[in-house]
């Protein structure tokens, strides 16, 4: 499903974030990308989601070579993924419902069908009934779950989360991991970047450990 073949990423200015990286992720897998901050975890996820372009090697998603996609084709690649960003990227000028509805609107799904899916997604993360609330009234953990609802609302094949538990306390983090596992159990490929080694990964899932841009 996802295949990296000798992938390198060199940022302008000379910082080499990834070096000669090769691995494969099958459909339905649960994969943790671990390593210290600066090890290249975020870059790895961004290369997959088409948010950055590799400077060498090939990144295959399905059978598409992402590094050779035209700019106009990128939005359609990005729609295959549900993204949970490190900084949530919630929109604080609109309520929960509208936050979750955005990916559906981008996909051209509106009206009743959209409303149904938004409620289903909010239900999955335990925020149903608060659709009209504003994100600012949510706790940190709830905001993270809102971000997850937004990531899964358009039923992506691949869910990507960048440090989803970074600022949460232990019990919240465990809950959240449970949530990701539940998506994985219904067949979604899940990729999670985390700086913690051990702990969260317990209970199954492959680990890709990055150190200074290479797999160890």
């Amino acid at each position: 499903m996802i295949k990296f073949d000798r992938v390198g990423k060199l940022y302008p200015g000379g910082h080499e974030a990834l070096k000669n990286l090769s691995f494969e992720i099958a459909q339905g897998e649960l994969v943790f990308v671990t390593g210290h901050s600066g090890a290249g975890k975020s870059t790895l996820l961004k290369l997959i989601a088409g948010l950055e372009r590799a400077t060498s090697g090939t990144v295959l998603i399905g059978h598409q070579n992402v590094s050779q996609l035209r700019r106009a084709a990128l939005p359609f690649l990005r729609r295959k993924f549900g993204m949970v960003f490190q900084d949530h990227k919630l929109l604080f000028d609109r309520n929960l419902f509208d936050n979750v509805a955005l990916p559906l609107h981008i996909n051209g799904i509106v009206g009743q069908e959209a409303a149904k899916r938004v409620r289903a997604a909010l239900d999955k993360v335990g925020l149903l009934g608060r659709e009209r609330a504003m994100p600012v009234t949510l706790s940190g953990g709830e905001q993270q779950r809102l971000a997850i609802a937004r990531a899964v609302v358009s039923r992506p094949e691949i869910l990507i989360a960048d440090e989803p538990t970074a600022n949460l306390d232990e019990s919240y983090a465990t809950d959240l991991m449970q949530l990701f596992r539940s998506f994985n159990q219904v067949g979604v490929t899940v990729l999670i970047a985390t700086h913690a080694r051990g702990g969260e990964q317990s209970g199954g899932g492959r680990v890709l450990h990055l150190k200074q841009g290479t797999l160890t």
Binding site: A72, F81, K89, I106
Partner: peptide
């Protein structure tokens, strides 16, 4: 700005 940036990240076309 934030909405536009986010929309781009999750697959909005320029047209959208």
């Amino acid at each position: 700005h934030e909405e536009i940036q986010l929309s781009r990240l999750i697959g909005a076309t320029d047209r959208f």
